[in-house]
């Protein structure tokens, strides 16, 4: 069953330890959610996840994550394009800044964004007279999720832009294509799988995001309450089965997205391989 080519020692101890630790920390605790939801039974699960407040929270989470992922794709594409295709002073510094949302703890991002977009905040004070309310609205949730999602898009697209084949681009222009045609017909199709991956990563992260959102969302039931917050609300009422039911629905959604990402990446890899051969 196990092939061990070569002379290297330590397969069994390393393998057994990895599997044991993985099971204890990740697999067994995670299975607790599914078992808890299952022991409550289907009627109870269905009753929980179809109650109006929970459905509203799913809609808020899903809608804001979707809007933020789309915005992240557009903004992230512009940033990645400038970083990969143009030269300007301070470029590598700007490139390093893109990782800030990965490194900054979510709660810190949450209070900072809230203070910026609150009606008396640095940005909020200019947006409020225009009739744009950001803090404590779904728009605020979306802004927080753009902050969280942007690096996923930039870091997905950058390597593809770096590898883009200049010869194809030159061939297209020398055959008479305009700059816009080259972009639309040659460059953009090559970036599309990476953009989709970035979109899916940002979207998946947005669905589960908690720390950066709870402060700016205002948490009004039926309006700006996100799904993770309802899990906490259920726990505070000692409704463990209800919390587990909401969690299962979220886990299924995010695993589906991760599966989709692998599928996109696998397909684009196969596409590149057939093109090369």
């Amino acid at each position: 069953m196990f092939k061990r080519p070569g002379v290297l020692p330590g397969f069994w101890p390393a393998y057994s330890y990895s599997v044991l630790y993985l099971s204890l920390i990740v697999l067994i605790p995670l299975s607790a959610v599914f078992l808890k939801a299952a022991t409550a039974g289907w009627p109870k699960i269905w009753q929980t996840i179809s109650s109006p407040r929970v459905v509203a929270a799913y809609e808020v989470s899903f809608g804001a994550s979707l809007a933020a992922a789309i915005a992240s794709v557009v903004i992230g594409f512009v940033i990645a394009w400038a970083l990969e295709r143009y030269e300007f002073p301070g470029k590598s510094f700007v490139d390093a800044l893109v990782d800030i949302p990965f490194a900054l703890p979510t709660a810190v991002a949450g209070i900072s964004l809230t203070s910026l977009y609150a009606p008396n905040g640095w940005l909020g004070r200019y947006l409020t007279p225009l009739g744009i309310k950001v803090a404590f609205t779904p728009l605020g949730i979306t802004i927080a999720l753009i902050f969280i999602g942007l690096p996923f898009v930039v870091r997905s697209v950058q390597p593809v832009m770096e590898d883009a084949d200049h010869e194809v681009e030159e061939a297209a222009s020398s055959l008479g294509a305009s700059r816009w045609q080259v972009f639309r017909r040659v460059l953009f199709p090559a970036f599309r799988p990476a953009l989709l991956t970035g979109f899916a990563l940002a979207f998946a992260r947005g669905l589960g995001e908690y720390g950066s959102v709870v402060f700016i969302s205002g948490n009004l039931p039926m309006k700006t309450e996100i799904a993770p917050l309802l899990i906490i609300a259920k726990l505070e009422q000692y409704d463990y089965a209800g919390a587990a039911a909401i969690a299962v629905a979220m886990l299924v959604a995010s695993f589906f997205l991760l599966f989709l990402i692998n599928f996109i990446q696998g397909r684009s890899r196969r596409f590149m391989e057939t093109k090369l051969s």
Binding site: L22, V26, L27, I28, P29, L30, A32, V33, K36, T106, A204, L207, G208, E209, Y210, G211, P228, L229, I231, I232, L235, Y238, Y240, A243, A244, A247, M250, L251, S254, F255, L257, L258
Partner: peptide
């Protein structure tokens, strides 16, 4: 399987341990 925790919401990551070790847990 190693990547799973990256795909799980932080709140769910806390919840699973409440379901195992909490007063009403396993």
């Amino acid at each position: 399987l190693i990547d799973i925790p990256f795909g799980v919401s932080p709140v769910v990551s806390g919840l699973i341990f409440v379901l195992v070790f909490g007063a009403q847990g396993w």
